[in-house]
Write a protein that binds this DNA or RNA. Structure first.
Lengths: 189, 189
DNA sequence: GGTAGTAGCCTAGCTCTCCTAGGCAAGCGA
DNA sequence: TCGCTTGCCTAGGAGAGCTAGGCTACTACC
Protein backbone atom coordinates (compact mmCIF):
# COMPACT_ATOMS: atom_id res chain seq x y z
CA UNK A 1 0.00 0.00 0.00
CA UNK A 2 1.24 3.50 -0.88
CA UNK A 3 2.34 5.69 2.00
CA UNK A 4 0.47 8.92 2.76
CA UNK A 5 3.64 10.98 3.29
CA UNK A 6 2.51 12.43 6.57
CA UNK A 7 4.96 14.82 8.20
CA UNK A 8 4.64 17.07 11.23
CA UNK A 9 4.92 20.09 8.94
CA UNK A 10 2.01 18.96 6.79
CA UNK A 11 0.03 18.11 9.92
CA UNK A 12 0.62 21.56 11.39
CA UNK A 13 -0.41 23.24 8.15
CA UNK A 14 -3.53 21.14 7.71
CA UNK A 15 -4.32 21.72 11.38
CA UNK A 16 -3.95 25.47 10.89
CA UNK A 17 -6.35 25.42 7.94
CA UNK A 18 -8.81 23.37 9.92
CA UNK A 19 -8.49 25.71 12.89
CA UNK A 20 -9.44 28.68 10.72
CA UNK A 21 -12.50 26.81 9.51
CA UNK A 22 -13.85 25.24 12.68
CA UNK A 23 -11.87 26.76 15.56
CA UNK A 24 -8.80 25.41 17.34
CA UNK A 25 -10.83 23.64 19.98
CA UNK A 26 -12.31 21.49 17.23
CA UNK A 27 -9.00 20.60 15.64
CA UNK A 28 -8.80 16.96 16.51
CA UNK A 29 -6.24 14.31 15.80
CA UNK A 30 -9.02 12.12 14.44
CA UNK A 31 -10.24 14.77 12.00
CA UNK A 32 -6.73 15.32 10.71
CA UNK A 33 -6.21 11.59 10.31
CA UNK A 34 -9.36 11.37 8.20
CA UNK A 35 -8.07 14.20 6.03
CA UNK A 36 -4.83 12.35 5.42
CA UNK A 37 -6.65 9.08 4.76
CA UNK A 38 -4.96 7.47 7.73
CA UNK A 39 -6.04 6.01 11.06
CA UNK A 40 -5.87 8.34 14.05
CA UNK A 41 -3.54 6.08 15.98
CA UNK A 42 -1.00 6.43 13.19
CA UNK A 43 -0.60 10.14 13.82
CA UNK A 44 0.81 9.44 17.26
CA UNK A 45 3.89 8.30 15.46
CA UNK A 46 4.43 11.93 14.38
CA UNK A 47 2.74 13.69 17.28
CA UNK A 48 3.34 13.39 20.99
CA UNK A 49 -0.30 14.07 21.74
CA UNK A 50 -3.16 16.40 20.84
CA UNK A 51 -1.59 19.31 22.71
CA UNK A 52 1.59 18.87 20.74
CA UNK A 53 -0.44 19.37 17.57
CA UNK A 54 -1.86 22.64 18.85
CA UNK A 55 1.54 23.88 19.87
CA UNK A 56 2.82 23.22 16.36
CA UNK A 57 -0.09 25.17 14.92
CA UNK A 58 0.72 28.02 17.29
CA UNK A 59 4.37 28.08 16.24
CA UNK A 60 3.39 28.05 12.57
CA UNK A 61 1.04 30.98 13.11
CA UNK A 62 3.62 32.89 15.12
CA UNK A 63 6.13 32.53 12.29
CA UNK A 64 3.64 33.49 9.59
CA UNK A 65 2.60 36.58 11.49
CA UNK A 66 6.21 37.58 12.10
CA UNK A 67 6.83 37.35 8.35
CA UNK A 68 3.86 39.53 7.59
CA UNK A 69 4.78 42.11 10.16
CA UNK A 70 8.37 42.20 8.92
CA UNK A 71 7.16 42.83 5.37
CA UNK A 72 4.78 45.55 6.52
CA UNK A 73 7.49 47.24 8.55
CA UNK A 74 10.09 47.43 5.76
CA UNK A 75 11.05 50.99 5.01
CA UNK A 76 8.77 52.56 7.56
CA UNK A 77 9.42 54.47 10.75
CA UNK A 78 7.58 56.38 13.47
CA UNK A 79 3.81 56.43 13.40
CA UNK A 80 3.87 55.01 9.92
CA UNK A 81 5.58 51.89 11.26
CA UNK A 82 3.24 51.70 14.22
CA UNK A 83 0.18 51.70 12.00
CA UNK A 84 1.70 49.20 9.57
CA UNK A 85 2.53 46.82 12.40
CA UNK A 86 -0.87 47.15 13.97
CA UNK A 87 -2.74 46.60 10.73
CA UNK A 88 -0.65 43.60 9.76
CA UNK A 89 -1.40 42.15 13.17
CA UNK A 90 -5.13 42.78 13.05
CA UNK A 91 -5.51 41.68 9.44
CA UNK A 92 -3.78 38.41 10.18
CA UNK A 93 -6.01 37.79 13.17
CA UNK A 94 -9.12 38.41 11.12
CA UNK A 95 -8.06 36.35 8.15
CA UNK A 96 -6.91 33.50 10.36
CA UNK A 97 -9.06 33.39 13.49
CA UNK A 98 -8.14 29.81 14.28
CA UNK A 99 -4.44 30.36 13.85
CA UNK A 100 -4.67 33.49 15.97
CA UNK A 101 -6.50 31.66 18.73
CA UNK A 102 -3.88 28.92 18.63
CA UNK A 103 -1.20 31.55 19.17
CA UNK A 104 -2.68 32.32 22.57
CA UNK A 105 -1.98 28.92 24.06
CA UNK A 106 0.54 28.77 26.83
CA UNK A 107 3.94 27.77 25.43
CA UNK A 108 6.47 26.43 27.86
CA UNK A 109 9.43 28.79 28.27
CA UNK A 110 11.99 26.93 26.17
CA UNK A 111 9.58 26.46 23.28
CA UNK A 112 8.65 30.14 23.46
CA UNK A 113 12.30 31.16 23.49
CA UNK A 114 13.00 29.41 20.19
CA UNK A 115 9.74 30.54 18.59
CA UNK A 116 9.03 33.47 16.31
CA UNK A 117 7.75 35.25 19.40
CA UNK A 118 11.28 36.52 19.81
CA UNK A 119 11.10 38.19 16.40
CA UNK A 120 7.84 39.82 17.40
CA UNK A 121 9.47 41.30 20.45
CA UNK A 122 12.37 42.62 18.40
CA UNK A 123 10.13 44.20 15.80
CA UNK A 124 7.98 45.83 18.42
CA UNK A 125 11.08 47.33 19.98
CA UNK A 126 12.21 48.51 16.55
CA UNK A 127 9.09 50.62 16.24
CA UNK A 128 9.88 52.39 19.46
CA UNK A 129 13.15 53.67 18.04
CA UNK A 130 11.10 56.40 16.42
CA UNK A 131 9.84 57.46 19.83
CA UNK A 132 13.13 57.73 21.71
CA UNK A 133 12.25 55.77 24.81
CA UNK A 134 14.89 54.31 27.09
CA UNK A 135 14.62 51.41 29.48
CA UNK A 136 12.56 50.54 31.38
CA UNK A 137 10.02 52.79 29.64
CA UNK A 138 10.66 50.91 26.43
CA UNK A 139 9.64 47.59 27.94
CA UNK A 140 6.54 49.12 29.46
CA UNK A 141 5.63 50.70 26.13
CA UNK A 142 6.16 47.44 24.27
CA UNK A 143 3.88 45.69 26.72
CA UNK A 144 1.23 48.34 26.44
CA UNK A 145 1.33 48.27 22.64
CA UNK A 146 1.06 44.53 22.51
CA UNK A 147 -1.74 44.58 25.09
CA UNK A 148 -3.71 47.11 23.10
CA UNK A 149 -3.36 45.20 19.84
CA UNK A 150 -4.16 41.85 21.29
CA UNK A 151 -6.94 43.16 23.49
CA UNK A 152 -8.65 45.00 20.68
CA UNK A 153 -8.44 42.16 18.21
CA UNK A 154 -9.58 39.61 20.70
CA UNK A 155 -12.52 41.66 22.01
CA UNK A 156 -13.54 42.48 18.47
CA UNK A 157 -13.61 38.80 17.63
CA UNK A 158 -15.57 37.65 20.66
CA UNK A 159 -18.10 40.40 20.08
CA UNK A 160 -17.15 42.60 23.02
CA UNK A 161 -17.73 45.71 20.93
CA UNK A 162 -21.06 44.69 19.48
CA UNK A 163 -23.23 46.61 21.92
CA UNK A 164 -22.20 49.93 20.38
CA UNK A 165 -22.98 50.62 16.71
CA UNK A 166 -19.78 52.54 15.91
CA UNK A 167 -17.69 50.72 13.27
CA UNK A 168 -14.74 49.01 14.87
CA UNK A 169 -12.48 50.14 12.04
CA UNK A 170 -12.97 53.72 13.15
CA UNK A 171 -12.25 52.93 16.78
CA UNK A 172 -9.19 51.02 15.67
CA UNK A 173 -7.62 53.90 13.80
CA UNK A 174 -8.41 56.33 16.63
CA UNK A 175 -6.85 53.90 19.06
CA UNK A 176 -3.69 53.91 16.96
CA UNK A 177 -3.73 57.71 16.95
CA UNK A 178 -4.02 57.60 20.70
CA UNK A 179 -1.16 55.12 21.00
CA UNK A 180 0.98 57.42 18.89
CA UNK A 181 0.15 60.29 21.22
CA UNK A 182 1.06 58.39 24.33
CA UNK A 183 4.29 57.01 22.89
CA UNK A 184 5.25 60.56 21.95
CA UNK A 185 4.39 61.81 25.43
CA UNK A 186 5.38 58.90 27.60
CA UNK A 187 4.86 59.95 31.23
CA UNK A 188 7.98 60.41 33.31
CA UNK A 189 8.07 59.02 36.84
CA UNK B 1 -33.17 8.15 48.37
CA UNK B 2 -32.45 11.73 49.42
CA UNK B 3 -32.25 14.31 46.65
CA UNK B 4 -28.99 16.10 45.99
CA UNK B 5 -30.60 19.55 45.61
CA UNK B 6 -28.88 20.33 42.36
CA UNK B 7 -29.75 23.69 40.85
CA UNK B 8 -28.32 25.57 37.91
CA UNK B 9 -27.02 28.20 40.32
CA UNK B 10 -25.11 25.66 42.37
CA UNK B 11 -23.83 24.04 39.18
CA UNK B 12 -22.56 27.35 37.85
CA UNK B 13 -20.84 28.13 41.13
CA UNK B 14 -19.23 24.71 41.43
CA UNK B 15 -18.23 24.96 37.77
CA UNK B 16 -16.63 28.33 38.41
CA UNK B 17 -14.61 26.95 41.33
CA UNK B 18 -13.54 24.01 39.23
CA UNK B 19 -12.60 26.31 36.36
CA UNK B 20 -10.27 28.26 38.63
CA UNK B 21 -8.60 25.04 39.70
CA UNK B 22 -8.24 23.13 36.45
CA UNK B 23 -9.14 25.59 33.67
CA UNK B 24 -12.45 26.09 31.88
CA UNK B 25 -11.60 23.63 29.15
CA UNK B 26 -11.46 20.91 31.79
CA UNK B 27 -14.76 21.79 33.39
CA UNK B 28 -16.79 18.82 32.39
CA UNK B 29 -20.36 17.82 33.04
CA UNK B 30 -19.12 14.47 34.28
CA UNK B 31 -16.71 16.01 36.82
CA UNK B 32 -19.45 18.23 38.17
CA UNK B 33 -21.82 15.28 38.47
CA UNK B 34 -19.23 13.40 40.50
CA UNK B 35 -18.89 16.38 42.81
CA UNK B 36 -22.62 16.43 43.40
CA UNK B 37 -22.75 12.68 43.88
CA UNK B 38 -25.00 12.29 40.91
CA UNK B 39 -24.80 10.61 37.49
CA UNK B 40 -23.73 12.84 34.63
CA UNK B 41 -26.86 12.16 32.63
CA UNK B 42 -28.92 13.64 35.45
CA UNK B 43 -27.38 17.05 34.98
CA UNK B 44 -28.93 17.35 31.55
CA UNK B 45 -32.18 17.86 33.37
CA UNK B 46 -30.76 21.20 34.57
CA UNK B 47 -28.37 21.95 31.71
CA UNK B 48 -29.04 22.16 28.01
CA UNK B 49 -25.56 20.90 27.21
CA UNK B 50 -21.92 21.39 28.14
CA UNK B 51 -21.75 24.75 26.41
CA UNK B 52 -24.72 25.93 28.42
CA UNK B 53 -22.74 25.20 31.57
CA UNK B 54 -19.82 27.30 30.39
CA UNK B 55 -22.11 30.17 29.46
CA UNK B 56 -23.56 30.13 32.97
CA UNK B 57 -20.07 30.23 34.44
CA UNK B 58 -19.28 33.19 32.19
CA UNK B 59 -22.39 35.07 33.30
CA UNK B 60 -21.59 34.37 36.94
CA UNK B 61 -18.09 35.70 36.50
CA UNK B 62 -19.29 38.76 34.61
CA UNK B 63 -21.66 39.61 37.44
CA UNK B 64 -19.04 39.02 40.14
CA UNK B 65 -16.55 41.22 38.35
CA UNK B 66 -19.13 43.95 37.85
CA UNK B 67 -19.83 43.93 41.59
CA UNK B 68 -16.17 44.23 42.41
CA UNK B 69 -15.60 47.02 39.96
CA UNK B 70 -18.64 48.87 41.24
CA UNK B 71 -17.34 48.63 44.80
CA UNK B 72 -13.88 49.79 43.73
CA UNK B 73 -15.32 52.72 41.84
CA UNK B 74 -17.48 54.06 44.66
CA UNK B 75 -16.53 57.62 45.56
CA UNK B 76 -13.72 57.88 43.07
CA UNK B 77 -13.25 59.99 39.98
CA UNK B 78 -10.67 60.82 37.33
CA UNK B 79 -7.42 58.92 37.35
CA UNK B 80 -8.23 57.57 40.77
CA UNK B 81 -11.27 55.85 39.31
CA UNK B 82 -9.32 54.62 36.30
CA UNK B 83 -6.72 52.95 38.49
CA UNK B 84 -9.34 51.47 40.82
CA UNK B 85 -11.25 50.00 37.90
CA UNK B 86 -8.13 48.60 36.31
CA UNK B 87 -6.85 47.01 39.49
CA UNK B 88 -10.18 45.49 40.35
CA UNK B 89 -10.24 44.01 36.87
CA UNK B 90 -6.72 42.64 36.97
CA UNK B 91 -6.99 41.33 40.53
CA UNK B 92 -10.14 39.45 39.67
CA UNK B 93 -8.53 37.93 36.61
CA UNK B 94 -5.55 36.77 38.65
CA UNK B 95 -7.55 35.42 41.54
CA UNK B 96 -9.97 33.66 39.22
CA UNK B 97 -8.17 32.61 36.05
CA UNK B 98 -10.79 30.02 35.15
CA UNK B 99 -13.69 32.39 35.65
CA UNK B 100 -11.86 35.04 33.66
CA UNK B 101 -11.20 32.66 30.80
CA UNK B 102 -14.84 31.66 30.83
CA UNK B 103 -15.79 35.31 30.43
CA UNK B 104 -14.10 35.34 27.05
CA UNK B 105 -16.43 32.87 25.42
CA UNK B 106 -18.64 34.14 22.68
CA UNK B 107 -22.09 34.95 24.08
CA UNK B 108 -24.92 35.20 21.63
CA UNK B 109 -26.25 38.78 21.36
CA UNK B 110 -29.43 38.42 23.40
CA UNK B 111 -27.62 36.66 26.25
CA UNK B 112 -24.93 39.31 26.20
CA UNK B 113 -27.53 42.07 26.27
CA UNK B 114 -29.07 40.79 29.50
CA UNK B 115 -25.70 40.01 31.12
CA UNK B 116 -23.62 42.06 33.50
CA UNK B 117 -21.56 43.06 30.47
CA UNK B 118 -23.96 45.98 30.16
CA UNK B 119 -22.98 47.18 33.64
CA UNK B 120 -19.33 46.94 32.67
CA UNK B 121 -19.94 49.17 29.70
CA UNK B 122 -21.79 51.71 31.84
CA UNK B 123 -19.08 51.80 34.47
CA UNK B 124 -16.34 52.21 31.91
CA UNK B 125 -18.23 55.15 30.46
CA UNK B 126 -18.63 56.57 33.95
CA UNK B 127 -14.88 56.76 34.32
CA UNK B 128 -14.61 58.84 31.22
CA UNK B 129 -16.77 61.55 32.73
CA UNK B 130 -13.66 62.78 34.44
CA UNK B 131 -11.99 63.19 31.06
CA UNK B 132 -14.65 65.19 29.24
CA UNK B 133 -14.85 63.20 26.04
CA UNK B 134 -17.84 63.42 23.73
CA UNK B 135 -19.07 60.89 21.19
CA UNK B 136 -17.71 59.16 19.22
CA UNK B 137 -14.41 59.73 21.04
CA UNK B 138 -15.95 58.31 24.17
CA UNK B 139 -16.76 55.01 22.50
CA UNK B 140 -13.30 54.80 21.03
CA UNK B 141 -11.73 55.53 24.39
CA UNK B 142 -13.90 52.93 26.12
CA UNK B 143 -12.81 50.39 23.56
CA UNK B 144 -9.16 51.28 23.92
CA UNK B 145 -9.32 51.08 27.70
CA UNK B 146 -11.03 47.73 27.67
CA UNK B 147 -8.56 46.47 25.06
CA UNK B 148 -5.61 47.52 27.15
CA UNK B 149 -6.91 45.93 30.31
CA UNK B 150 -7.94 42.70 28.70
CA UNK B 151 -4.85 42.50 26.52
CA UNK B 152 -2.48 43.08 29.40
CA UNK B 153 -4.14 40.63 31.74
CA UNK B 154 -4.43 37.98 29.11
CA UNK B 155 -0.85 38.29 27.87
CA UNK B 156 0.40 38.31 31.43
CA UNK B 157 -1.42 35.08 32.10
CA UNK B 158 -0.31 33.24 28.99
CA UNK B 159 3.27 34.27 29.66
CA UNK B 160 3.61 36.78 26.84
CA UNK B 161 5.70 39.06 29.05
CA UNK B 162 8.01 36.41 30.41
CA UNK B 163 10.89 37.05 28.03
CA UNK B 164 11.68 40.35 29.75
CA UNK B 165 12.65 40.37 33.43
CA UNK B 166 10.88 43.61 34.35
CA UNK B 167 8.13 43.03 36.94
CA UNK B 168 4.73 43.13 35.30
CA UNK B 169 3.34 45.12 38.21
CA UNK B 170 5.61 47.99 37.25
CA UNK B 171 4.62 47.85 33.60
CA UNK B 172 1.01 47.74 34.66
CA UNK B 173 1.12 50.94 36.70
CA UNK B 174 3.07 52.72 33.97
CA UNK B 175 0.51 51.57 31.44
CA UNK B 176 -2.22 53.09 33.60
CA UNK B 177 -0.23 56.33 33.78
CA UNK B 178 0.01 56.26 30.01
CA UNK B 179 -3.71 55.61 29.64
CA UNK B 180 -4.41 58.58 31.88
CA UNK B 181 -2.19 60.72 29.67
CA UNK B 182 -3.91 59.70 26.49
CA UNK B 183 -7.41 60.12 27.92
CA UNK B 184 -6.43 63.60 29.03
CA UNK B 185 -5.01 64.40 25.61
CA UNK B 186 -7.31 62.51 23.30
CA UNK B 187 -6.29 63.32 19.74
CA UNK B 188 -8.71 65.39 17.70
CA UNK B 189 -9.45 64.37 14.14
C1' DG C 1 20.49 -7.39 -6.23
C1' DG C 2 19.49 -9.55 -1.93
C1' DT C 3 18.56 -8.67 2.75
C1' DA C 4 18.40 -6.25 7.34
C1' DG C 5 16.49 -2.68 9.74
C1' DT C 6 13.58 0.90 10.53
C1' DA C 7 9.99 4.12 9.49
C1' DG C 8 5.24 4.31 8.82
C1' DC C 9 1.21 2.46 8.90
C1' DC C 10 -2.28 -0.94 10.86
C1' DT C 11 -5.88 -3.33 14.33
C1' DA C 12 -7.59 -3.87 18.81
C1' DG C 13 -8.98 -1.99 22.73
C1' DC C 14 -9.15 0.95 26.90
C1' DT C 15 -11.00 5.31 29.14
C1' DC C 16 -13.41 9.42 29.11
C1' DT C 17 -16.72 12.81 27.59
C1' DC C 18 -21.24 14.24 25.71
C1' DC C 19 -25.77 13.29 25.14
C1' DT C 20 -30.56 10.73 24.33
C1' DA C 21 -34.29 7.66 25.60
C1' DG C 22 -37.00 5.77 28.68
C1' DG C 23 -38.04 4.35 33.57
C1' DC C 24 -38.87 4.82 38.57
C1' DA C 25 -39.41 7.21 42.91
C1' DA C 26 -39.70 11.35 46.12
C1' DG C 27 -42.45 14.59 47.75
C1' DC C 28 -45.63 18.21 46.96
C1' DG C 29 -50.55 20.00 46.29
C1' DA C 30 -55.30 18.90 46.19
C1' DT D 1 -54.40 9.53 50.33
C1' DC D 2 -53.62 9.83 45.66
C1' DG D 3 -51.70 11.50 41.67
C1' DC D 4 -48.56 14.31 39.11
C1' DT D 5 -44.56 16.67 38.44
C1' DT D 6 -39.73 16.98 39.43
C1' DG D 7 -35.48 14.91 39.82
C1' DC D 8 -32.91 11.31 39.70
C1' DC D 9 -31.72 6.66 37.61
C1' DT D 10 -29.85 2.88 34.00
C1' DA D 11 -28.56 1.72 29.45
C1' DG D 12 -26.27 2.77 25.61
C1' DG D 13 -24.30 5.05 21.35
C1' DA D 14 -20.89 8.15 19.17
C1' DG D 15 -16.62 10.25 19.09
C1' DA D 16 -12.16 11.77 21.11
C1' DG D 17 -7.51 10.63 23.17
C1' DC D 18 -4.13 7.38 23.64
C1' DT D 19 -1.35 2.70 24.21
C1' DA D 20 0.38 -1.80 22.87
C1' DG D 21 1.80 -4.64 19.72
C1' DG D 22 2.01 -6.32 14.83
C1' DC D 23 2.74 -6.15 9.83
C1' DT D 24 4.76 -3.89 5.61
C1' DA D 25 7.00 -0.64 2.45
C1' DC D 26 11.07 1.45 1.71
C1' DT D 27 16.04 2.46 2.40
C1' DA D 28 20.72 1.52 2.83
C1' DC D 29 24.31 -1.26 2.91
C1' DC D 30 27.02 -5.11 1.64
Amino acid sequence: MARAKVTVERLALAGAELADEVGVENVTVAALARQFGVKDASLYFHLKNAHDLRVRIALLALAELADRVAAALAGRAGKDALVAFANAYRDYAREHPGRYAAMQIDLDPETAATSAGVRHAEMTRAILRGYRLSEPDQTDAVRMMHSTFHGFVSLEKTGGFRHTPRPTDDSWSRTLDALDVVLSNWPSR
